[in-house]
Amino acid sequence: MISIGGWAVGSLPFHMMASDQNKILHFTRSVGGFLNKYGFDGVDINWCYPGSLGSPYTDRLKYIELMSALYINFWANEAMGNEKRILSATVPAGRWIIDRGFDIEALRNWVDFINIMAYDYHGSWEYSPTGIHNALNPRTKDPAQEFNAKWTVEYYIKNGFDPVNINLGIPLYGRTFHLANDFQFGVGAPSTGAGPKFGPYSRASGMLGFNEICPMLLEETGYTLIWHEEHQVPYFYNRQTGEWVSFECPISSARKALYVEERGLGGLMFFSIDSGDFDGSFCNFGIQPIVVSTIIISYYNKSMAFIEHLYNFTRHSSYDETDDLRPPCDFSDHGFTCSPDPNGIYPHPCPYQCDKWIHCSHNIPYIKDCPLGQYFINETRRCDWPWLTQCPRSFT
């Protein structure tokens, strides 16, 4: 199959084409001719995204019109005695983008299957705490429980898709963050944007391919690799450089393959193949280990113990994200008083407690926490992004 669209294409070309019935007709005929000429089995439409990124809300309907036109064209071609053509859609994982641009109940009537992009749940574009971008399961302490593959799959099923017509997407790349300090480095640690590392192949801010991540872990020093037991994926960090990376590995992809079997889904989709270990020279695990581990699970019925032994991917005990390296500190030891305003708002007097503040009420101080990943800004008396304050970045 071929795929048309993607993030780099954006929404505008689809919007312009889908807004004109004649252009839709020309597009469907052009796709059919291309498939016949080059012998492809079908086409995948990856419109990123109707109703978002400059696309008006009315494109939600136009998207269905486009998909139905392609489906009818393929059906007519099959009715004439030709081979059946396959039509699929690559669809987003986030509920806001889904609801705004994708009529799931209608879409299920016009595609053979969907490929869910179960990644990019978090990234440096959020200017927020570090987060796992490709989680399989939710994290107990997350205020929202929908930033993970299982939630997204169930959302599509609840809205009408048969599980067997759903493929789960797995990323062959990681998302990077730049830690705001060197004493908080778990999931939810304050960050100041994209990680400092710029990959020689991806050449993009905030992301690294698996073929760029492996050499970092194998050849460079200072990295600590963590397996997140709840999310069932790894991440790593470097306290010296501030690099923090959420990524996929052969073990996490194999666990997702097990989930696909258990839930009765159709299969897996990988994005993008050029970001993986395409020739086996980057990770010492052979060619495309993230893909191969899922094949071993799905087709050769091997156990996770076999996968972990085969790839010997270093696993550490999960870091307790409720702790960090800051020493205990009682604000009363610093002579704090609710002065001059007995009902005022004050910064926490203890060093490194940048994510806390004190609210005084009738001369009684109460310690308050900033939202996850934010620091208290003394000048504005509110919590905001870490780079807007001079809170110490290091104990030294």
Rank of each mutant, 00 (worst) to 15 (best):
V91M: 03
L70T: 05
R100M: 07
S272T: 14
S339E: 11
G123L: 10
Y311W: 13
R85E: 03
L25I: 03
I345W: 08
D341E: 13
S361V: 13
F40R: 09
F285I: 00
L208P: 02
I364N: 14
N301L: 14
S19I: 05
F306W: 15
F270H: 09
G222A: 04
P50G: 08
R100N: 06
A93H: 01
Y127I: 05
S128V: 00
S332N: 12
L258Y: 09
V292I: 14
S30M: 14
S339K: 13
C48I: 15
W125K: 04
P327M: 08
E78H: 15
R108V: 14
G94Y: 03
M216S: 05
R175K: 09
K84M: 05
N77A: 13
E154S: 15
D277C: 09
E219V: 00
R100A: 10
N343R: 06
P349L: 08
D41Q: 14
P250C: 03
S19H: 02
A204H: 09
I251K: 03
K84Y: 10
F278A: 14
P349N: 13
S317I: 05
K62Q: 13
E219T: 03
Y201R: 04
D355G: 08
S281Q: 10
Y127L: 12
G199M: 01
G195V: 00
G6E: 02
L372T: 07
F147Y: 14
C249Y: 06
I358W: 01
R29T: 10
R315D: 04
R382A: 05
K141I: 09
Y49F: 15
M80L: 12
C370Y: 05
C283H: 06
W387L: 14
N159L: 05
N109D: 15
G160Y: 01
A180P: 08
T389V: 10
Y57F: 03
S339P: 05
D142P: 02
G344L: 13
H231Y: 11
Q21L: 05
C350G: 03
P56L: 11
P171N: 01
I295D: 10
L35M: 09
I296Q: 10
R85Q: 11
W387N: 15
N312W: 10
W110Y: 15
N211V: 01
P215E: 07
S394V: 04
S281Y: 04
M304N: 10
N137R: 07
G32T: 01
N284I: 00
C329R: 01
L268S: 10
Y237V: 00
A135Q: 03
L179E: 08
E262N: 08
L66I: 09
G206Q: 05
I114S: 07
E105G: 01
W387T: 11
G6A: 06
T322L: 10
L258Q: 14
F102Q: 02
A89N: 04
E154F: 15
Q232L: 05
N167K: 07
L388N: 14
Y366C: 04
E154I: 06
R100T: 11
A257L: 08
F376Q: 01
I45Q: 07
F14K: 07
A89G: 06
Y346D: 09
I251D: 12
N301V: 06
Y375E: 00
N36D: 15
F147G: 10
V31N: 11
G206A: 06
F40K: 11
M17A: 08
F306D: 15
G195E: 03
F247V: 00
